[in-house]
Computed example of a mutant assay.
Amino acid sequence: MTSTTQIDARIVGNVEFRAGDGPQLKIPEGDVQVLMADDSVVLTWTENGQSLTAAIPKIEFDRYIQDKAVVLGRG
């Protein structure tokens, strides 16, 4: 069974994801909702009035936090 945690965060640097086999896409700076599982993270944000989501490996998300491109919590 996988446990999940939902937290608020802010994108403050270059954070990208790949949609399927397509190119890397940038998540815009601003507030996001983060749903963390054991091995993956789903980010949800609003852009032009639309709710968008991206799934990335947890190890990649941890690197974004270490690089200070993602800040946990709201500011």
Rank of each mutant, 00 (worst) to 15 (best):
I7R: 02
Q24F: 13
A9T: 02
N14R: 14
P28K: 00
E60H: 15
E47H: 01
S51T: 11
S51E: 14
V71N: 05
V12E: 13
E47M: 05
R10M: 10
G20L: 12
V32D: 01
M36Q: 11
A19H: 14
Y64W: 08
T46Y: 05
R74F: 00
T4S: 07
K68S: 06
D31S: 11
A37M: 11
N48P: 04
S3Y: 00
T46D: 00
V42Y: 00
G73I: 00
Q50T: 04
T4M: 04
S51F: 00
S40K: 09
E16W: 06
G73V: 00
V32A: 05
P28D: 00
T44H: 02
I56Q: 08
A54Y: 03
Q33E: 10
T53N: 13
P57W: 06
A19I: 12
I56G: 07
V12T: 13
T5N: 11
T53D: 09
L52G: 03
A54S: 06
G73R: 01
P23R: 15
G75C: 03
Q33P: 04
G20R: 11
I11Y: 06
V42W: 01
E29D: 10
S51K: 14
G30A: 02
T2A: 14
F17D: 05
P23W: 09
Q6S: 10
S40R: 09
Q6R: 08
P28Y: 00
A69S: 13
L25S: 14
E16S: 14
F17G: 08
P57I: 05
R74V: 01
A69E: 01
K68V: 01
T4V: 09
K26G: 10
Q66S: 14
V71C: 08
I59S: 15
Q33H: 07
A9C: 12
V41D: 02
Q66A: 15
A54K: 05
L35V: 03
M36V: 08
L35I: 03
K26F: 00
K68C: 02
I11V: 15
K58Q: 11
D31M: 08
D31G: 08
D8W: 00
A69H: 10
V42L: 09
D62H: 12
D21P: 13
F17N: 09
V32G: 03
V42H: 03
D67L: 13
S40M: 07
L72K: 06
T44K: 06
I27L: 12
V34L: 08
M1T: 06
Y64S: 07
V70L: 10
V15H: 03
G13D: 09
E16F: 09
L43C: 05
S3C: 12
I7M: 09
T2H: 09
G20N: 12
K26N: 13
L52K: 14
G20F: 11
Q6K: 09
A54T: 03
D67Y: 07
L25H: 14
T2W: 08
P23H: 13
I65S: 08
D38Y: 08
G22N: 14
G22A: 15
G20C: 13
T44D: 05
S51H: 06
G49I: 01
